[in-house]
Write a protein that binds this DNA or RNA. Structure first.
Lengths: 132, 132
DNA sequence: CTTGACTCTGACATTAATGGCAGGGTGTAT
DNA sequence: ATACACCCTGCCATTAATGTCAGAGTCAAG
């Protein structure tokens, strides 16, 4: 299978497929003319890569365990767990940060309606510097 | 006040102060020698800019209403509300997306412990492609 | 033999705010 | 005058995955 067909089958752009190769995530054979030749397993492999990318992992992290998860069930790959845990901590920190920003925005928006605070007994006046 | 002092007072790097100027957020006078001369009000102005940046707004968005919020209480600046609402929608979408990823990670991590789902009566088997 | 579809490499662009450097001017104190 | 602190502009780098282009080679069908 050549790169165009793999791209069509997986939804990954040709550019991305070449990038994955440059990052060491996939290693197609080369034909005599220099064209990449992908094995049929490459399709699943690319889907796997894209799935982990959607989870927010970097190509570097994926490279660290891809060889394992491609050859056995994920939960037997001990390399994966710390990556997941670290990513989870990142995500939760991001969520917390976004939640703070969201709360601040909600407050500020409600102040436009001249309504009372979501807090308890605070002044309803909202100055720019009220919440940092 | 020259740029070094303003930087010290606000915590914004000199580089950033020049950037804010390039983005049209602040317009210091120039002395005969070319040095920027900031009015005392610039300190509050920069704090305001930084606050909005912390909220995740871009310099372009800030430029759209900065002139207003510097001259009157924020909630009288009608330009601000749609920016807030749009940003809030963004943030909530991001939170939702991150929450999906987080749930997926939590699931996968728990599968390493061979434990039951956090869901109700689902299979405990976790394949890579289970949740997209 | 030509056309068109495909592939290759290499390089630059994107995003947004900031860091950092080079090369030079200014101002003040000793 | 010399040292030192400060300021200026302009430029390149960062991040990570992807888009996009140019210039060239390959190959099958007509």
């Amino acid at each position: 299978m050549k790169i165009g067909e793999l791209s069509r089958r997986t939804g990954a752009s040709i550019r991305s497929l070449r990038y994955y190769e440059a990052q060491g995530l996939i290693a197609p054979l080369r034909e005599a003319n220099g064209y990449r030749e992908y094995s049929p397993l490459a399709e699943e492999q690319v889907r796997t890569i894209r799935f982990y990318l959607q989870l927010g992992l970097t190509t570097e992290q994926i490279a660290g365990f891809l060889h394992c998860v491609l050859s056995r069930p994920e939960q037997f790959c001990t390399e994966v767990l710390p990556v997941y845990e670290s990513k989870l901590a990142d995500i939760e920190a991001q969520i917390a940060q976004l939640a703070r920003i969201r709360d601040n925005l909600v407050d500020r928006i409600s102040s436009f309606r001249g309504e009372s605070d979501s807090g308890e007994g605070e002044s309803t006046r909202h100055e720019r510097s009220e919440r940092y």
